[in-house]
């Protein structure tokens, strides 16, 4: 039996940026993440991926809706239980330079969570740091050094070690490889895949590199302007995309085989509309090659169109 580790019901996260302007960064999204899976999240810049990730792990409070973690509704937990849930949900950030405090030694950075939750102290703490460093492919000598002495890929490993320190069950990896060289990206991806098995983890993997998302994910969700547009297992998404936005997104990926390169592609006209003033009805309709009258009038419903394959589009 596969169980859902995280369930999201009608989740909303709005930001008021002026007295009369609100950004609906996450707007009424429902889905679940199964225990032990890697759930990939893709979508245009500004579509709300990071906001969704941060809201899930509790860095930001939801504006509305429910997050059910391991069967418990986070809203209904007391302080003590909430703290425990927060410990089990960790996040790794995109920019390995900005997310590590330059004045702290690597060992202390990694131990941030250990200290906050008072998990180990003294010699045990040191041993735990060494163990974590080795776990992510660094060495115990690195504990005394500062972040600037490390390359981008190594810094991302430090960020991963910090997340692992509190023995989380669920990790949001927010573009963990975007800032890295191609040759280093594969190192970090392989590490994440190894850790998933050895530490029994569940991932929400956010990325804009669709190739990597396909490689690492069991299931994939596609976001556009604060909405989930489509969700299915990873192979289905690539062989049978239903939503016109997903179809355009996939067709826009450059093929890494020069003999395949001369194919027809769907080039979307125009730019994504402003998130403060999204189009009526379907948010994709202003760029959609299949838009019909109803698309402007009515918001399409989130439907399971095929088994385990959801989309929100009036074509279905």
């Amino acid at each position: 039996m596969t169980k859902n580790l995280v369930e999201v019901q009608s989740l909303k996260k709005y930001f008021k940026i002026k007295s009369d302007v609100t950004v609906k960064s996450v707007d009424d999204i429902s889905f679940y993440i199964r225990k032990g899976e890697t759930f990939g999240l893709v979508g245009e810049s500004g579509s709300g991926k990071s906001t969704l990730g941060k809201t899930l792990v509790g860095i930001q409070a939801a504006s509305d809706g429910d997050i059910i973690y391991n069967g418990q509704n986070i809203k209904q937990l007391n302080k003590e239980m909430k703290r425990n849930v927060n410990k089990e949900m960790q996040i790794i950030f995109q920019d390995p330079h900005a997310s590590l405090n330059p004045r702290m030694r690597v060992g202390d950075i990694i131990a941030e969570g250990i200290d906050a939750y008072k998990l180990f102290s003294g010699k045990d703490r040191t041993n735990r740091i060494y163990e974590l460093l080795e776990r992510v492919g660094l060495s115990p000598q690195h504990a005394k050094r500062y972040p600037h002495e490390f390359s981008g890929g190594q810094r991302q490993r430090i960020g991963i070690a910090r997340a692992l320190a509190v023995e989380p069950k669920f990790i949001v990896a927010d573009e963990p490889i975007s800032a890295l060289d191609v040759s280093i990206q594969a190192q970090v991806i392989n590490l994440l895949e190894d850790l998933k098995v050895s530490e029994d983890l569940t991932y929400l993997f956010i990325a804009h590199d669709l190739g990597m998302v396909k490689h690492i994910s069991d299931r994939i969700g596609v976001m556009y302007l604060g909405k989930m547009m489509e969700l299915s297992n990873s192979d289905d998404m690539f062989t049978n995309p239903l939503h016109p936005y997903t179809q355009a997104l996939l067709s826009a990926i450059p093929k890494t085989n020069p003999r395949d390169a001369k194919r027809e592609r769907i080039v979307l006209a125009g730019d994504p509309p402003s998130p403060t003033n999204p189009p009526s009805g379907c948010r994709f309709r202003t760029r959609c090659p299949h838009a019909m009258e109803v698309c402007a009038l009515q918001e399409p419903q989130w439907k399971e169109v095929e088994k385990e394959h959801w989309t929100a589009c009036h074509l279905y």
């Binding site: 890929g153 040759s183 190192q187 991806i189 392989n190 990926i253």
Partner: peptide, 28 residues
Amino acid sequence: PYTWGLLNSIPNLEGTEKKQLIPIEGSP
């Protein structure tokens, strides 16, 4: 070999079978 490494570091978009990426070890 650096070109080989680059080509082996990128995931394959075709097909459904998954294979491990072969990274270039070490740093620039």
